[in-house]
Amino acid sequence: TSSHKLRLYERDDYRGLMSELTDDCACVPELFRLPEIYSLHVLEGCWVLYEMPNYRGRQYLLRPGDYRRYHDWGGADAKVGSLRRVTDL
């Protein structure tokens, strides 16, 4: 099985509160109590970021690497509604 891990930060450049995720999350704002995510670091696996909860809205593919600001993943703003692991490519 492949492993997945990413870290979410409330501010750009990996500042502020950090939360780690290793499984799908249908509602990021509810789980982490963060209305917006300004940076993230994908440590393992690929993920799909959705701008709205319950895997809706615009989708962004996140490969392992650094995303210091939301425009690094192509986002128009810092809204992160849900995240899902990519298990098949």
Rank of each mutant, 00 (worst) to 15 (best):
Y50S: 03
G65H: 04
Y9V: 03
S3I: 10
S82E: 01
L34G: 13
Y14A: 05
C27G: 05
L89T: 15
P53H: 08
N54W: 07
Y60Q: 04
Y50E: 00
Y70E: 08
L21D: 12
R63T: 11
T87V: 09
R68Q: 06
N54G: 13
R15S: 12
R68Y: 10
L62G: 07
M18S: 14
E30N: 10
L62V: 13
I37H: 15
G45W: 01
L43F: 10
A26N: 10
N54I: 06
S39Q: 00
C46R: 07
R7H: 09
R7W: 04
D12K: 13
M18A: 09
P35W: 09
K79L: 11
S82R: 00
I37V: 10
P29D: 13
H4R: 02
R84Y: 03
R11E: 14
D66C: 07
L17I: 14
M18P: 01
R7I: 10
G74K: 08
S3G: 07
N54A: 05
E44R: 06
L8K: 04
D12Y: 10
R56Q: 13
L61Q: 15
Y60C: 01
M18R: 06
Y67E: 03
R84P: 05
T87Q: 13
R58N: 07
Y9G: 01
R33Q: 15
M52S: 10
L8W: 03
E30K: 12
L34D: 15
Y38G: 12
E36R: 10
M52L: 13
T87H: 10
T87E: 15
L17G: 11
E36Y: 14
M52I: 00
L49E: 05
V48W: 13
R84D: 00
G74W: 03
R11D: 09
L49I: 05
D77F: 03
L62E: 01
L89K: 08
Y60P: 03
Y70F: 08
M18D: 02
D12F: 14
P64G: 14
G16M: 05
L21R: 01
V80S: 01
R84I: 06
C46Q: 06
K79H: 09
E51Y: 08
P29E: 13
Y9F: 10
L8E: 01
R11Q: 14
F32N: 09
K5I: 08
T87K: 07
R58C: 09
R11L: 14
A76C: 10
L31W: 14
I37M: 12
Y55V: 01
G81V: 00
R63I: 00
F32C: 11
C27N: 11
C46K: 14
R11T: 07
G65R: 01
C25Y: 03
A26Y: 09
D88Q: 07
S2V: 12
L89F: 15
R58P: 04
A78Q: 05
L43G: 00
Y70Q: 08
H71R: 11
R15W: 04
S2W: 09
G74S: 05
R63K: 11
L49G: 04
L62P: 00
R15K: 15
P53D: 07
S19C: 08
T87G: 13
L31H: 11
D13R: 08
W47T: 05
E44G: 12
R58W: 02
R69A: 12
P35L: 07
E30Q: 12
R7C: 05
L34S: 12
G74M: 03
L8P: 02
L61D: 15
G74I: 06
E44V: 07
D24T: 02
E30C: 08
V28W: 02
Y60W: 08
L83N: 04
S3R: 05
L8N: 01
E51P: 02
L31R: 12
T87F: 11
D77R: 09
L62M: 03
G74T: 04
L49A: 06
L89I: 09
S3K: 12
L61R: 13
Y9C: 00
K5E: 01
R15H: 11
E36P: 05
K5G: 01
S19K: 13
L31K: 11
R56T: 14
L17V: 11
P53M: 05
E51V: 05
L43W: 06
P64L: 02
Y67R: 07
Y38V: 14
Y50A: 01
V86L: 10
C25V: 11
L8Q: 02
V86Q: 12
S39G: 02
I37F: 12
Q59T: 10
Y14R: 06
E10G: 08
A76S: 13
L6F: 02
L83E: 01
R84L: 05
G75I: 09
E44C: 09
G74F: 02
M18G: 04
G57Y: 06
L49D: 05
T22H: 07
L62D: 00
Y55H: 02
R85G: 02
S39I: 00
V86N: 04
